[in-house]
Every structure is written in C-alpha cells, then in structure tokens.
C-alpha cells in the first residue's frame, strides 16, 4: 500500500513539472504536452485520494478529466497545426497578435 502522502507528492511533482513546462517553454507542442502533464498530475492525486478515501468518486472524476484532456488535446493540436500552416513556426513569441 503506497502511502497517500507519496501519491500526492508525486502528483504535485508532475503538476509542477507541467506548470513549469507551460510557463517556461515557448514551443507550442511542448506546451500542450506540459498541459497534459498538469492534468495527469491532478489525475494522480484524484485517483490516489479516491482510493485512500475508499470512494469511486476520485477515479470517476479522473476519468472525466482524461476525457476532457483528450478533447483538449484534439482541439489543441488542431489549432497548433493550423497555426503552423499559417506561420511555419511553433514559437509562441511570434504568437502575440492580441498584444494590446
């Protein structure tokens, strides 16, 4: 039985890595991948806590997150592809058309 603290710690580490990736990297694909890491870090915590509390709710909620992540990935990659076709680049530095 893995202690709950370890599970949460692991989840937080994954989440933090994802967060850092999203904030630091400028490659759109990497950012999307980091976004997956964020979600999955949360999933780990959700699943772990569900098991710890002996409730199916955590796993069910994690499943929803996975479904959302899939949709998000699909839409996200479609956008990235469209952007790439337009700019021939993945770099977010050139992606500042909304600059005020």
């Amino acid at each position: 039985m893995i202690p709950i603290e370890a599970v949460i710690g692991f989840g937080l580490i994954i989440f933090t890595i994802g967060l850092a990736g999203v904030l630091v990297r400028k490659n759109l694909v990497i950012m999307l991948m980091s976004l997956e890491l964020l979600l999955n870090g949360v999933n780990i915590i959700l699943a772990g806590l569900g098991r710890h509390l002996n409730s199916p709710r955590g796993s069910i909620f994690a499943l929803f997150v996975i479904i959302n992540a899939v949709s998000e990935a699909a839409v996200g990659f479609a956008l990235v592809l469209a952007y790439f076709r337009h700019r021939k680049s993945y770099d977010t530095d050139s992606l500042n058309d909304l600059k005020g």
């Binding site: 999203v22 904030l23 400028k26 950012m31 909304l98 600059k99 005020g100």
Partner: peptide, 10 residues
Amino acid sequence: LRRLQTGFVY
C-alpha cells in the same frame, strides 16, 4: 491598461 495585454501566452 493595454500594456497588460502582452499577447504572449505564457
């Protein structure tokens, strides 16, 4: 206020 809108996703 427009300075806030950098346009950079990060």
